[in-house]
Amino acid sequence: MNFQAVKAIYLFEMARTWRTIWQSIVSPVVSTSLYFVVFGSAIGSRIETVEGVSYGAFIVPGLIMLTLLTQSISNASFGIYFPKFTGTIFEILSAPVSFFEVVIGYVGAAATKALMIGLIILLTATLFVDIRIAHPLWMVGFLVLTAISFSLLGFIIGIWADSFEKLQLVPLLVVTPLVFLGGAFYSISMLPEAWQSVALANPVVYLISGFRWSFFEVSDVPVGISLAMVGLFLALCLGVIWWIFKTGYQLKK
């Protein structure tokens, strides 16, 4: 195991975070605060409670998930796409590192950054609403697993993309709609019955439901199923990455 290489890639990626601190950390905090103002205060004041939880607090887990997913994907996809774009990827390919080590470096850094932002949003939220976390360990567990899974997905997208447009395609056209339709701002049970079954096909429903359960002990689906779905998604991403590295897809000629 080339620990030095993992460390070098990880620190290189984290240095990018610090260098672009405004874009990396501050802008998600600002946009989340705006969600709170609009959904939490303006609209939320018309909605009393959802499943016994005040609406302002109810949307916090969904908001954190929304940012966690988009940040994990964009950090990891950009991290591996940019060296491909500039050509510096040659260095990674000619270094004595296994693909596994490369993934740990890039995905680890992307997940770390996404987690930092998730926690900052949680802290920001406490300024607006009263939050109590029923199962802190579960909460952290869901956060970490989700950050890693979606950073892996981001890594896959970064390898697949051969233009900046493609890099944006999946996050904008797939992930954001799934999160909005996945119950970030409402409970699935508020939907008409037919749509409830459709919603269950959305993987993000399980993430948000499980994560929300760790806060308020209310969920759309049993927490065990949520955890299983995250695990399944993680395994799926690992499988795709294993295949990419075995075949050298988009990396090696």
Partner: peptide, 16 residues
């Protein structure tokens, strides 16, 4: 965007 020193130091690490 990296400094000369950092980029050279990075490669050293990458090569173990």
């Amino acid at each position: 965007f990296e400094s000369v020193f950092d980029t050279v130091s990075f490669t050293r690490g990458l090569f173990g």
